[in-house]
């Protein structure tokens, strides 16, 4: 199938960016990133610079890939990262617009590559359990209700890709931050630090220039791990409890 692509090209952080049009011949079994590989080979052969994009696992778990496809972070399929999208969902003659995450908290490095180090700083502001190596009790010493552990897991599956920020009209990092807070707060191991954790992480999120959450819900729709927005309500309750006590 023949596709028209419009891809965001930007040479560097301080350069102007623009959408550039390309034609590519794809095959329905290809993955979306393989389709861009094909384009890049074409560009290199023609003496042009290939489109830079982050990718690594290509199976939806590392959180590297980040592209807004026809206006939607990670593209049209629910619960699917861009690298897991296959070309069988497109048809001959389609036009596809590909842009990077656009958010104040994620400055552009080149083309589709952005700087997401703010996420690391949010985790470093308490998104952990303070247990030094070697000091842990037997793993079965504290039984955890299966339902609780499963719910904690649902939040823990966040891959830190940043699609939630890219989808949010306020460029808020609330779903990302809340999912770590909820994961750890739901487990007995995370209980001791839950108050300081929520306050520090929320403060850090604000410092990084991410906006507020206004319950728009776009984040949960694009999350490749389908993390529910109720994480954010949970985070708010945790925050209130922490600052009021």
């Amino acid at each position: 199938m023949k596709l028209s692509l419009k891809i965001w090209r930007q040479e560097g952080p301080d350069k102007e960016g623009r959408l550039v049009r390309y034609q590519v011949e794809a095959n329905p079994h290809m993955s979306f990133l393989e389709m861009i590989d094909v384009l890049n080979e074409q560009l290199i052969k023609a003496g042009e610079d290939p489109v830079e994009f982050d990718h690594d696992c290509r199976e939806g778990i590392c959180g590297s890939c980040n592209m807004v496809i026809n206006g939607v972070p990670h593209g049209p399929l629910r619960g699917t990262a861009a690298c897991q999208l296959h070309m069988r969902h497109y048809k001959d003659g389609d036009t596809i617009v590909i842009e990077p995450w656009l958010a104040r908290g994620f400055p552009i490095i080149k083309d589709l590559v952005v700087d997401r180090s703010a996420f690391d700083r949010i985790i470093a502001a308490g998104g952990y359990v303070s247990v030094d190596t070697g000091s842990a009790p037997d793993a079965n010493a504290i039984p955890i209700e299966k339902v609780k552990s499963d719910t904690a897991f649902d939040y823990a599956t966040c891959i830190g890709c940043g699609a939630c920020v890219a989808a949010c009209p306020n460029a808020s990092a609330s779903l990302f931050t809340a999912s770590k807070i909820a994961h750890l707060a739901l487990l007995p191991q995370g209980d001791a630090e839950r108050k300081t954790r929520v306050v520090r992480m929320v403060d850090q999120m604000e410092k990084e220039g991410f906006g507020d959450c206004s319950n728009h819900g776009a984040c949960e729709v694009v999350c490749p791990k389908e993390i529910p927005i109720d994480a954010i309500a949970f985070m708010r309750r945790e925050y209130m409890k922490a600052v009021l006590s």
């Binding site: 190596t133 823990a156 750890l184 995370g190």
Partner: peptide, 15 residues
Amino acid sequence: QSVAQGVPFAREYGG
């Protein structure tokens, strides 16, 4: 060590 860090390994109904 991992459980103490909050790694949510699979559990039985008994916890």
